[in-house]
Each structure stands twice: as structure tokens, then as C-alpha cells.
């Protein structure tokens, strides 16, 4: 049985979303196991190249989790991430990739429940969309 399990790469900022994910974990909240999280210092550090590379290497979805507007530890990183995500979604759509495969969410360190909810929702969205079928072997090792 090969039921499709979405692979989601989560870029989570150290100060908010990653701590939120951590809280969800230590509080033993139940959530889909589909997100592979990567801790970054700030969502502003997430270059669009990272996101495209994640897709190119086989991710079916990419989640960016950062601090709420006004709360970014580095003042403006999350606004930058927001602008990039707007560009990326438009660009993905033009290339025939459903923009819902990229999601950006503001999750504070105390919002473990929100993190769990976002992960569950996104997993179901991607499950419904199906696999992206991008898997570039040469890039995985690059």
C-alpha cells in the first residue's frame, strides 16, 4: 500500500515558531508527523532559493513559520519573508504549481496549539493536492 504521505519542509524561526513547535512537542500535542523542521534564526534568513530547492529536492509543501508582525527579533525579517512569499506564490502559480504548497504563518513561542493546527491543516491541504513529483537527484547532493 503506497498511500501518499506529504513531505513538508518547515523553516521555523528560532525565536517564535520553532519555540512554538517545541512547546507543542513538550505539551504532547497530537499533530501530523509530516513536517521536517529546519531551525533558522529568522524567517528573513530564508532565501527564496532555499524554498525552491526544497521543492526541487522532493518537498510537496514548504511551511515558513515566524514571529508575529512587529515581534521579529531582528525587527523586519518577517516582513521580508512575507514579501518573498507573495512573489513566490505568484511565480509558483505561473509555473503550474499550486501556491497553497507554500504557506507562511506567524506563530509565537506560546502558540504550540496554533503550530499543531497549522501543521495538521497544511498536511491535509497537501494530501488533497497530491505529490509534486519534483525530485532532482543532482540537486539533492549539491
Amino acid at each position: 500500500m503506497n498511500e501518499f504521505e506529504p513531505k513538508i519542509v518547515g523553516f521555523l524561526c528560532n525565536w517564535c515558531a520553532y519555540s512554538g513547535a517545541d512547546l507543542a512537542g513538550v505539551s504532547r500535542m497530537k499533530m501530523a508527523p509530516n513536517v521536517r523542521s529546519i531551525r533558522v534564526m529568522c524567517t528573513g534568513r530564508v532565501d527564496p532559493t532555499f524554498i525552491l530547492k526544497a521543492f526541487a529536492c522532493g518537498a510537496d509543501g514548504v511551511l515558513i513559520g515566524g514571529c508575529h508582525p512587529g515581534d521579529c527579533h531582528y525587527a523586519e525579517g518577517n516582513y521580508k519573508a512575507l514579501r518573498r512569499s507573495v512573489f513566490l506564490k505568484r511565480m509558483l502559480k505561473e509555473q503550474g504549481i499550486d501556491p497553497q504548497r507554500l504557506r507562511i504563518e506567524w506563530i509565537s513561542a506560546s502558540e504550540g496549539d496554533k503550530y499543531a493546527k497549522v501543521v495538521d491543516e497544511m498536511t491535509e491541504t497537501i494530501r488533497a493536492l497530491g505529490p509534486l513529483n519534483q525530485r532532482n537527484k543532482e540537486m539533492i547532493n549539491a
Binding site: 527564496p48 532559493t49 508582525p69 514579501r83 518573498r84 512573489f87
Partner: peptide, 20 residues
């Protein structure tokens, strides 16, 4: 390595707005 990704990064840095 990805020209479009770099362009999106560059333009996102210069947009003067915080309102979605």
C-alpha cells in the same frame, strides 16, 4: 544558482510596505 529566486529576494528587500 537560481536567477528568479535571487530576483525575488532582491525585489522583496526594496518594497516599502509592511501591509499584506
Amino acid at each position: 544558482p537560481d536567477q528568479g529566486a535571487k530576483m525575488m529576494a532582491a525585489l522583496s528587500s526594496v518594497i516599502d510596505s509592511q501591509d499584506p
